[in-house]
Computed example of a mutant assay.
Amino acid sequence: MRPWARIFLIGLVLWVATVVVTAWTGNASLVPTVVLFGSFLVPVTFVVWAYGRGRSPRVTVERLFMAFVVGGVLGVLGASLLESWLIRPSIIMYVLVGLIEEGVKLAALMFVTRHMDRRGTRDGVVLGATVGFGFAAFESSGYAFNALFTADGLSLAQLVETELLRGVLTPVGHGLWTAIAGGVLFAAGGRFRMPVVLTYLGVSLLHALWDSMTAIAIAITLVLTGRPWQFALLRVGRVPDVTAWQAHVYTALNWAGLIVISLVALAWLRAVMSSARREPKILSQ
């Protein structure tokens, strides 16, 4: 069995066991273990998988650890500070979030790899993915922790649901976007040249579309299936009830949008990896 598969299976068994014991005993002291296992399992698994596929003498285990932990924490801290200062509810809120989070992850990647003498596109993809997955792990632990608290008290079920959903979506989120940006950055020699700027803006747009997909799906659903009485309620600032059919349309549109965004990002990453195979041999060894 491959290392990444072994890590995932062992971690999954331990996480499920911790959830079951926590639910059985009601021991709140086990909640941090549930949060950490559920938030870090998928990101760590994909970092190990990426390392195995793009192994390079310049991408050491120590450098991976620095990218995941230091890069991830710096990214989360930087995003939290900038978003608290700059983000206000508005039409462009999701665009700003995308620009900020992709910007701090790229800056974190540049920081943790500043001492690298030689850089290949494949190195940038692996280390960029590692920073992105580190960011995703720490961010998911925060979301899971917040999901624990409800109006009716602590909810282990809501925590688990949050971790399952974010775990499923993790491979096509932060790690994928930063892998693309990292590959292009390293292909440019670690300098912020025009291809890097355009890539940064592109992955930020994908990020913004991803975050705003719920709102986009709601808007499209209303345009396609909205009733006059629903628009009348919206005009006076009231939230109308929705029909069962509208709920189905919204769900289908939301997931379809996320799938399209993911496919675009995966195709982009594949193009970046294709360019890595055309690099001089000295960079790919």
Rank of each mutant, 00 (worst) to 15 (best):
I218A: 12
A5D: 00
L159W: 02
T22R: 07
S274K: 14
P171E: 08
G103V: 01
G54F: 15
L86M: 11
S204I: 15
W255V: 09
A267K: 07
R166M: 02
A67Y: 08
G132F: 07
T214R: 09
A188W: 04
R122N: 12
L206W: 02
V223L: 15
A136V: 08
A28I: 05
A256R: 07
N254Y: 15
P32E: 07
L169E: 05
P32G: 14
L82Y: 00
L283G: 12
F138H: 06
A28W: 11
N146P: 06
A271H: 14
L201C: 15
V13L: 03
P228Q: 02
L82V: 03
R278K: 13
T150K: 05
R88T: 01
R53Y: 08
I261L: 00
W229M: 06
H248E: 13
H248G: 09
A187I: 01
V126I: 13
L164G: 11
P3M: 13
G189M: 04
F192V: 12
A50Q: 06
K281M: 14
V196N: 07
W210Y: 04
G257R: 10
A129Q: 02
I10F: 01
A217H: 10
I259L: 03
V168P: 03
I10M: 01
M110Y: 08
V61S: 11
A67C: 11
G11A: 12
G54S: 12
R114W: 05
L266H: 04
V112A: 06
Y94T: 14
W15A: 12
G38A: 06
V13G: 02
G128M: 05
V42K: 01
V172I: 15
L30H: 09
W268F: 14
D211G: 04
M93H: 08
V160P: 03
Q158K: 10
V168S: 10
L64C: 07
V76Q: 05
T178H: 06
R277N: 06
E163S: 05
F46S: 01
I282R: 08
L269V: 02
V44M: 09
P240V: 14
M194N: 00
V197I: 15
A147M: 05
L253T: 02
R227A: 07
G120F: 08
A276Y: 02
V34I: 15
F37T: 08
V47L: 04
I216K: 13
V16A: 13
I92D: 12
L206Q: 04
E62Q: 09
L106N: 07
R63T: 12
G128H: 11
F133A: 02
G153L: 04
S90Q: 09
A252W: 06
V223A: 12
